[in-house]
């Protein structure tokens, strides 16, 4: 019992010391700015910025090779936080605060051409030729591809109606501009 406690304590401490030493020796100088930027980004890895995830976007932002307005889901609040972090002017004029959207078919002008049906990446649109199409809400990711191909503009992205299941917190309110410059 005594030997077991002592030897295991020694073993554990020796290995801990070894790992601690190795961590010092093999330390990787990461850019702390990248990690801070990554903490600002939404972290949903949606890829809408064109980078392979929020980590890639944070790297590009830290290298100043990407505009701070690159993140559509982040909206204005993220742009402002990034401007503050990187010390650049925030141009909020072309940033929209998007709310969650979903495709919806306007039934009276749908001609059943099946074009939206063919481009939908998630098979969220149901229908057949000359039949009215409709959208499965659970499967729609609001990518907007159907909106582009629709010849009659009957399929459009609409904000998700607020129900008990679809309710969400509002995005953080933008602070006044003087807070940014301070």
């Amino acid at each position: 019992m005594f030997f077991a406690v002592v030897s295991l304590t020694i073993l554990g401490s020796a290995m801990g010391l070894f790992l601690g030493y190795a961590a010092r020796r093999l330390e990787v100088e990461g850019n702390p700015l990248v990690e801070e930027i990554q903490a600002i980004l939404p972290g949903s890895q949606c890829g809408q910025c064109g980078f392979p995830g929020c980590a890639g976007a944070a790297q590009a932002l830290a290298d100043r090779s990407a505009p701070i307005t690159l993140c559509p889901p982040g909206g204005r609040a993220v742009v402002q936080a990034l401007a503050l972090k990187l010390g650049v002017e925030a141009n909020l004029s072309d940033v929209k605060d998007n709310v969650p959207m979903i495709a919806e078919v306007k039934e009276e002008i749908c001609i059943g051409c099946t074009r939206c049906f063919k481009v939908c990446p998630t098979d969220a649109i149901m229908g057949a030729a000359q039949q009215m199409h409709s959208v499965f809400r659970e499967a729609c990711t609001a990518c907007g591809k159907c909106e582009e191909v629709c010849p009659t503009e009957s399929i459009k992205l609409q904000p998700i109606p607020v129900t008990l299941h679809a309710w969400y917190w509002h995005k953080p309110v933008i602070q006044p501009m003087q807070a940014v410059s301070a």
Binding site: M15, F18, L19, A22, A23, L26, V28
Partner: peptide, 11 residues
Amino acid sequence: VVVQFTEMVVR
């Protein structure tokens, strides 16, 4: 311990 060490080396 070995895995941690390997992770550090790979990183």
